[in-house]
Each structure stands twice: as structure tokens, then as C-alpha cells.
Amino acid sequence: MTSILQKLILIASPFFILSCISEQIGPEVDCVTSPVEITIDQLVDANCGASDGSFLVIADGGIGPYTFSSDFESNSDGSFTQLASGNYAISVTDSVGCASEIDVTIKNKGGVNLDEIVTTDSGCGTSQGSIDVTASGGVEPYSYSLDGGSAQASNTFAGLSHGSYDVVVEDATGCETTQSVNILSGISYQNPIKSIIENNCAISGCHNGSVSPDLRSFSSIQSNADRIKARTANGSMPRGRTLTQTQIDQIACWVDDGAPNN
């Protein structure tokens, strides 16, 4: 029979120890020092009313291979074709998850184009937002519409609440261009969101390190933003305290804005 001493020697043998550490852990990747860099090549504008525009996205840096994504497709070669005029948000992600984004504009050849869109915030729970549009090209006069609504001669839309809107500009020949625009609430993390969390959540016995997640840093608050919104809305957070409805609404508006560090 194998003695207890023999068993201990077997467990402590070099073979056993090596077998436990045979799995290699790869080096951590810093996306800041090794970023994915993006350039646009072979951009072709579209004929008015046609989906014949295109562009090629070229990635460098990071660790390939790359994945190229828009809101309508993903591919591995960076080629985007059969595009109508408009603005396209492109994201490139490398093999370890580092990502960069770029906006690409396909213009109308010889037609009306959107030069600039300026927005104002709506406020939280209010409708004080606005959109101002500057267009050029094509044949004037232009008409402007929002989300498929009635066309108007004014290039300004007011009384808008928080959300996403499709702005359409049409010239006198019927050529048009469209762009999506986000109206934010404008709620700031520095005031009031930070103080709400510091005074009610990141306190002793709660999310100050003793309970996960630790909400003493902005990065942790941002990564848990959706969870914070949901739990403050249903009253399960903060524990032992009650937020006002205004504070709950402010958290929700900030999270809906994308939880920015503003």
C-alpha cells in the first residue's frame, strides 16, 4: 500500500507541479498604446436617388485580423458598397477587442448635401432641444422634414425631446439626403450624477468597496450605468435610502445619453 509519505511526495513531484502551470497566460494588451488606426480610401459618392456609393476602410495597428462593422453589416475586408448618400458610422475591432470608430460621408453627386447640423440639448424630461441644418448644392429652394413628417421651408426644428431623429433635406429637383441626429438631455456626470452616487451609493457598508460593484470611480460607474439605471428605477438601489423622483430621472437621462464623462 502507498504510504501517506509517498502520496505527499507524488503530489509535490516536479511532474505534478509542471502539469498545473502548463497553461500559458498571454500578455495583457493596452489599447491606448497599441490603438487601431483607420483611414478611408476609394470613396465614391452616390448619384442622387441611387445606392451606388462606396468606400474602403483600411486598418493598421492593434493586432489583426480586423472586423469592420456599420449599423447595417459587418465584414472582414473593409469594403462597403451599394450606399446611398448619407453619414455612416464605421467601427473597426482587432483580434483582442481594441476598437476605433470613424464617420464617413457619402455625398450626392451634383445634388443637395448636408454641410452641418447643430443641436441643442433637450433637458431631462423636457422638450427644449433643437436642430439647425445647413445644406448646399443641388437646386434651391430646399425643404426640410423630420422623421417623415411634413416638409417645411425653415431649416430649424425646435421643441424636441431626447431621442434620435432622421433629418431629410430635399432640393427643387426632388433630390434628397438624410442623416440621423441624436438629441441629448445634457445631464452632467459632474453635477448632479456624481454627487447622487457618492452620497447615496458609494458609502460605508455599500458600494464603497465592501459591496460589488465598487462605485468610487467613474470607470466603474460608467460600466455599470445600465444596472444603476434599472435598480434606481425599481427602488432596489440605494439600500436603506430613497432617491427623489428627480434624482431617479436624472440618472436615467444621463445613462440614456451614453453615460458620458461630462
Rank of each mutant, 00 (worst) to 15 (best):
G49W: 02
S69K: 13
A59I: 14
S76M: 12
F55V: 11
S76R: 14
S79E: 11
G64A: 13
V29W: 03
E28D: 15
F68H: 08
I58F: 00
G49Q: 04
L56W: 05
F55D: 02
C31E: 01
A50R: 05
S54V: 08
V29H: 00
I40C: 04
T67V: 14
P27H: 13
C48K: 12
Q42L: 09
V36W: 02
T39V: 00
G49S: 08
S69P: 05
G26C: 13
G49L: 00
S74G: 10
I40L: 07
V36C: 06
A59T: 15
T67F: 11
I63W: 07
T39M: 01
S51Y: 03
I25D: 13
C48N: 12
V44E: 01
G26H: 06
F72Y: 12
E28G: 15
A59Y: 11
D45T: 07
V57Y: 00
S69H: 09
G78F: 06
G78H: 09
T33P: 07
C48S: 06
S54W: 03
D60V: 04
S34Q: 08
I38G: 00
N75V: 09
P27Q: 11
I63M: 08
G78I: 13
C48G: 06
S34I: 04
N47W: 09
S70Y: 03
D52I: 12
Y66N: 09
